Computed example of a mutant assay.
Amino acid sequence: MAGSLNPKQDEESRNDQMVRFHSFFQGGTSSLVSTLIVFPFYKTVFRQQIHNAVVSEAVKQLCSEGHVKLYRGVVSPLLMKILGGTLLFGLQDTILHQLSPSSQNFISPSALPALAGFGAGVVEAVVCTPFERVQSLLQNGKNDRHLPTHKSIVVRLNAQRLSSGYYRGLLPITARNALGSFIYFGLKEPLRVTVEGLGLSPLVSSFISGMLGSMVISLPLYPLSVVVANMQKQVGGEDKGVIASWKKLWESRQRSVSLLYRGGSLVVLRSCISWGVTTAIYDMQQKYSE
Rank of each mutant, 00 (worst) to 15 (best):
Ala2Ile: 09
Ala2Met: 09
Gly3Thr: 06
Gly3Tyr: 04
Ser4Thr: 00
Ser4Arg: 02
Lys8Arg: 12
Asp10Glu: 15
Glu11Ser: 02
Glu11Phe: 01
Glu12Ile: 01
Gln17Val: 03
Arg20Ile: 14
Arg20Val: 12
Arg20His: 07
His22Lys: 12
Ser23Arg: 06
Gln26Thr: 05
Thr29Glu: 05
Val33Phe: 04
Val33Cys: 09
Ser34His: 07
Ser34Phe: 10
Ser34Thr: 13
Leu36Ser: 08
Phe39Tyr: 02
Phe41Ser: 00
Lys43Ala: 06
Val45Ser: 02
Gln48Glu: 12
Gln48Asn: 03
Ile50Pro: 05
Asn52Val: 10
Ala53Cys: 08
Gly66Phe: 11
His67Met: 12
Lys69Ser: 15
Lys69Ile: 07
Val75Glu: 02
Met80Leu: 15
Gly84Gln: 12
Gly85Glu: 02
Thr86Phe: 15
Leu87Thr: 07
Leu88His: 01
Leu91Val: 10
Gln92Lys: 10
Gln92Phe: 03
Ile95Cys: 05
His97Cys: 00
His97Ala: 09
Phe106Tyr: 13
Phe106Glu: 00
Ser108Cys: 13
Ser108His: 15
Ala114Asn: 12
Ala114Met: 09
Phe118Pro: 07
Gly121Glu: 04
Glu124Ala: 14
Cys128Glu: 03
Glu132Gly: 06
Gln135Pro: 03
Ser136Met: 07
Ser136Gln: 02
Asp144Thr: 06
Asp144Lys: 09
Pro148Val: 00
Thr149Val: 03
Thr149His: 02
Thr149Pro: 01
Ser152Gln: 07
Val154Tyr: 13
Val154His: 08
Val155Tyr: 13
Leu157Cys: 04
Asn158Arg: 15
Gln160Asn: 08
Arg161Asn: 11
Leu162Pro: 06
Ser163Gly: 14
Ser163Arg: 14
Ser164Gln: 12
Gly165Ala: 01
Gly165Lys: 03
Gly165Trp: 06
Tyr167Phe: 00
Tyr167Gln: 04
Gly169Ile: 01
Leu170Pro: 04
Leu170Phe: 01
Leu170Trp: 03
Pro172Asp: 01
Thr174Trp: 04
Asn177Ile: 00
Ala178Asp: 00
Leu179Tyr: 05
Phe182Asn: 04
Ile183Lys: 09
Ile183Pro: 01
Phe185Ala: 13
Lys188Leu: 15
Lys188Arg: 14
Pro190Val: 02
Leu191Thr: 00
Leu191Gly: 02
Thr194Trp: 14
Val195Cys: 04
Glu196Thr: 07
Glu196Val: 01
Leu198Ile: 10
Leu200Thr: 13
Met215Arg: 08
Pro220Ser: 05
Pro220His: 08
Tyr222Met: 00
Val226Phe: 09
Val227Trp: 09
Val228His: 11
Gln234Glu: 14
Gln234Gly: 05
Gly237Cys: 04
Lys240Gln: 13
Ile243Glu: 08
Ile243Lys: 15
Ile243Thr: 15
Trp246Asn: 13
Lys247Thr: 12
Trp250Ala: 10
Glu251Asp: 13
Arg253His: 12
Arg253Gly: 11
Gln254Ile: 08
Val257Gly: 07
Tyr261Ala: 05
Gly264Thr: 03
Ser265Met: 10
Val267Ala: 15
Leu269Pro: 05
Leu269Phe: 12
Arg270Glu: 15
Ile273Trp: 11
Trp275Arg: 13
Trp275Ser: 14
Val277Tyr: 04
Thr278Pro: 06
Tyr282Arg: 06
Gln285Ser: 05
